[in-house]
Amino acid sequence: MLKILGIESTAHTIGVGIAIDEKPYIIANERASYIPEKGGIHPRESSRFLAEKAPEVLARALRAASTSIDDMDGIAIALGPGLGPSLRVGATIARALALRYKKPLIPVNHGVAHIEIGLITTGARDPVVVYLSGGNTAVIAHHSGRYRVFGETLDIALGNLLDTFAREAGLGPPYVVNGLHVVDRCAEEGSKFIEDMPYVVKGQDLSFAGLLTASLRALKRGAKLEDICLTLREIAYSMVVEVTERCVSHTRKREILVVGGVAASPYLRDKMEWAAKHHRADLYIVPPEYAGDNGAMIAWTGLLAYKHGVSIPVGESYIKPRWRVDEVDTPWRI
């Protein structure tokens, strides 16, 4: 049995997970997330938090799986994409563990990990993947040995749009309460769709920056907050569904998988369900505990990679803040 320890620290979460190559696949998934009292994520503050919490999270993971680092076959680390200072925290820990315990170091792409954990936890086989989080918005499908980005945001990510608006409107932080984004919740009280807010789909790509600006302007103008949230939500989610639809139509795949921290929205799910039904595709949504950033996804993807001969010398394990999903060969999935 293979046992891989995975470390996630690309943004505001330090996560440690342990994966094995037989059921139940994930035997530990512990984390701590930096939630600023006000404002957004400051990279320096976030990385300080991650460094402080890392030893405790690592210990919790080992305890949860009743195992030790000696017992591992390798250490998987998310080298990117993400915030430099945050990435360095996890990378430093992973390198130290690999050297001290003489374990191979396995580089993992954070985005690929979101996809792989989605596949193993939902049972989807060859889906169009919709990857939605604070820093990423992309529609992806696997083709000839790599995940290919079919469409993506040209500016800010969906999560970024929701969080920034929530912050400016005084709805957060925290941005997600009881599994529901504060913008989603606020929109429930909205009744009127505001005209002339921009809906920007360019071919297969989307753009949210204009929508954010228009929403903030509407706020300043004194429009009802609930109506702005409703309009913002409807436009943003519809855009994502439209691009997804295009990818399904082009690739003729029969499954849609939604992954990432924003995957949980019930309103997005409703819209996706319509699109899936319309294209006779099955809809899968990653379970909540694996939706946000987590160590288990790094461990699991590291395990897949390691089984196919992927590892990296410590001396070459540079962080890659802009490492794209479509730059990663996936020998485990041809």
Binding site: F193, E195, Y199, E234, I235, S238, V241, E245, D270, W274
Partner: peptide, 12 residues
């Protein structure tokens, strides 16, 4: 597209 609010759908 039924996933879009009618007013938005019409406009697009």
């Amino acid at each position: 597209k039924q996933y879009r609010p009618e007013i938005l759908d019409k406009r697009i």
